[in-house]
Structures are given as C-alpha cells and as structure tokens.
Nucleic acid binder design. Structure first.
Length: 319
DNA sequence: AATATAATCAACCGCACTGAC
DNA sequence: AGTCAGTGCGGTTGATTATAT
C-alpha cells in the first residue's frame, strides 16, 4: 500500500514532545475524543503527524497508564506470557492493565533479557542456554560426586542453595544433561557404552558395571510416589517446585538432588530434592518425586505455562 | 570534576492488517 | 477482487540520564 504521506512531510515536527504540545493533545482528546488520527493534529493545532499524536497518546498521555517500576508479579507475568506468546507485545500488554506494549517491550529488552541470560535461560526460547561454555561454568557450582552406581542413584550437592539463581541453574543444567546423550565438547571414550551424561560433564569415568551389569531402575523398586508432580510436602522447607520457579524463597542451605535414571536410555525416572541433612535417606518425605517416561525436567519448564490462572489468557493463546 | 561508557526509554520507521468502497 | 486510508504493531534509533573510571 501507499505509505502515509505525513511520514514524508519534513515540515512536521519530530522528536520529543513539549509540555505545550502535550497539553494541546490532551485538551483536544478530552473534549472531542481522538477521532481520526490523521485529521487530529490540524484540529488540535499541532504541527505533528497523526501517527506521532497517536503514539504520544497511547504510550504516554493516556490517563490510565501506570508508570513506575514493574512489580515482581508483573515481571513473572511478562516472562510467562512471553514464553507462550513470544514478542507479541501488544497482546502481552492486554494482560497488564496500565502498561503499554512499548513499555513492556523496553522493559523486556533492557531488563528481562539480561536477567534470564544470567539465569542460564535463553530469553528467546525460554529453554536452557545451549552454549557449552556457560554449561561448563555451571559445573563449578556443583560439587559432591557420583555415588552408588549400584543402586542407580546420582547425588548432586549444591552449595548455598538458598540462592534461587543457583537452583534454577541446577534445574537448567540437569535438563541440558538429560537431553544430551553425548555431552557436546567432551570426548567420549570408545566403546559401545555412552558415558553417563552427568559424568561427562564432571569429567569422570563411568564404571563398567553402571552400564552393563546394573539392573534397570524400575518404578516398583523405587519409593512410593508423592501424588502430585512438583509438590514438596514439607511446607517449612519449600512451598512447591512451582513456587520455587516463580521465586519463592528456600530456607535450607543445602539440597541433594537424587536422580534415578534408566541406565539404558539415561532418561530420569524420578527426582528427589532433599535437604542435605537428610541426604542419607532415599525416603519419601520432603520430596519432589516424579515418574515419567518423558524428561520430568521438561515438565518443570512446561509448568511455567500452566501457572497462569487466567481464563482470558488461555482463551487468548488458543486463538 | 571531567570524561567515558552503559542503561534507559520515548519516539520513529516501515510493514501488516482491516474494513470501506 | 482490487485499491486505498487508517490504524496497529514490532524493531530500531538516538537523546538523555545514570554510573563507572
């Protein structure tokens, strides 16, 4: 189509609006409504193109605009919405009363992108960052070791797990590991058996028995299940896995993640998060237990989507 | 205090979409 | 069905402000 001629009219003013111009625009719209944006500037006595007037009004002068810092709740909502809708700023804005698409876009590009990157999350895909260097750096967060190949349980210990970011990094790291049968950039010794991915990461060598003589972990061999995925049953420790992902605080200082895996496929069968003081236990309390043929950590990531308890939101994304 | 660099965000540009004719 | 005006949207720019050196 032919572009609006006002865009080429060099006699029209551009750049920042003066208070006088703002006043003229607000006065006019309050008295008459905006009507046709193209004709508005002339009627309002403004030497601007209609587009500029519309932008100024919708992004700045509208009376219902909420200004100031984004709340944590708004931040969470933006991340969740963005994970589903992508860069659909105007649609995201419909879920944040008083915020404009432009404001949300700016906020995303200047704050949230950076924040997610620091958390090890790709802001475009909302999945763990794939670059190897980052993942290798994460390994520095992990200490402890691989133990008990015989009972097929891998233990990780995370120092100072009070730091939410570390927990998220751990989740993301594990997801990356579970999705990777051959860890990128790490030499795998010749032979028919893959190294257990976690061991590759930590540059340890697998014992033969882990891969050849070990019975598969079977669900019936494992402790009984907690009924709901993601719910940890000790409220004093942790409200829920979902809550953790959305920023609730953890109060314990050390966690053990027990990960029971199918030794043939490497797929995790379930995970337990238990405080370090209970590390000797493989019991069922204080536990996030999962059983799934799919990667349960995918469920963790997917749960972000499910956290939006808003009918209009779901209607929106089904469109 | 002066300067350089980074962060912020209002505003612009141009393409896409919609509805009237 | 095609054209066009009006409007919406998302990416980008660049002026301003904040922070670091």
């Amino acid at each position: 189509m032919v572009r609006s001629p006002c865009c080429f009219d060099s006699s029209l003013k551009k750049g920042p609006w003066t208070p006088e111009e703002d006043e003229k625009l607000v006065d006019y719209i309050n008295r008459n409504g905006h009507g046709s944006w193209r004709t508005l500037p002339k009627l309002a006595g403004l030497n601007r193109c209609g587009k500029s007037c519309r932008l100024r009004w919708t992004n700045y002068l509208r009376p219902d605009i909420k200004r100031g810092k984004f709340s944590e709740e708004e931040e969470r909502l933006i991340v969740n919405l963005h994970s589903v809708l992508g860069n659909k700023w105007s649609r995201i804005a419909t879920h944040l009363p008083g915020r404009t698409d432009n404001e949300i876009k700016n906020f995303w590009n200047t704050h949230m992108r950076k924040k997610l990157l620091q958390m090890g999350i790709d802001p475009n895909t909302h999945k763990p960052r794939a670059d190897l260097n980052h993942l290798l750096n994460l390994s520095a967060l992990l200490f402890g070791n691989l133990t008990s190949p015989w009972n097929n349980i891998v233990k990780l210990q995370l120092a100072d797990a009070t730091h939410l970011t570390n927990i998220r990094l751990l989740h993301n790291l594990l997801q990356q590991i579970m999705n990777t049968s051959t860890f990128p950039g790490v030499t795998v010794s010749a032979g028919t058996q893959n190294l257990y991915p976690l061991e590759q990461l930590l540059n340890k060598t697998a014992t033969t028995s882990l891969y050849t003589n070990e019975p598969f972990a079977r669900s019936e061999d494992l402790p009984s299940q907690a009924p709901t995925i993601g719910v940890i049953d000790n409220a004093n420790l942790w409200a829920s896995l979902e809550g953790e992902l959305l920023g609730l605080n953890m109060e314990n200082n050390n966690l053990i993640m027990n990960s029971c895996c199918d030794i043939q496929t490497g797929n995790p069968l379930r995970h337990q998060l238990v405080p370090a003081s209970n590390s000797s236990s493989t019991g069922t309390s204080m536990v996030n237990q999962m059983e799934s043929n799919a990667n349960p950590l995918n469920d963790v990531v997917d749960s972000w989507d499910k956290l939006i308890d808003d009918d209009s939101f779901w209607k929106d994304i089904q469109e």
